[in-house]
Amino acid sequence: MNVNLTVLGQAISFAVFVYFCMKYVWPPIINGLRERQALIAGGLADAEKSSQKREEAEAEIATMLQDAKSQAAEIVAQAQKRSNEIVESSKDTARSEGDRLKQSAQAEIEQEIVGAKEGLRQQVGALAVEGARRILGTEIDQNKHNSVIDDLVKQL
């Protein structure tokens, strides 16, 4: 336990080791650690930023979806309205067409009735003349009596 030159030797080697540590060991390690710190901080900031962006995008998507939904509802409503209109108008068309057909058929029927009446009147006139000629036994001059017959016919 004697104090001797070892003290000095130890102090010298201590100085040498501290010098080496200060020169070659400490700076690269501590700089590397700082670099890593910056790296991690940057990564965290990036993650924060991208999550924020994602939230924004989600909000945007939600509004877009809302818009699309309301638009679709509007379109559906419009289409319904339009189809109702179409149905209504075609009903109208059908109704007026039916009316027209009915009217034309009625007119035809009336015409037929008139024609049939006319034919019958003439046949009745001829029958009346024939009947009268047979009864009288004389020849009736059709031309002579035409005015009488026509009167009779008209009375039918």
């Binding site: 201590f14 040498v16 080791f17 080496f20 540590c21 690269p28 390690i29 670099e35 890593r36």
Partner: peptide, 19 residues
């Protein structure tokens, strides 16, 4: 032991990887 310390830490410092 001191040389071992310097050698070991220098080795780590030389191959330092920030990743």
């Amino acid at each position: 032991l001191g040389a071992f310390f310097i050698w070991l830490f220098k080795k780590a410092a030389d191959n330092f990887n920030a990743g």
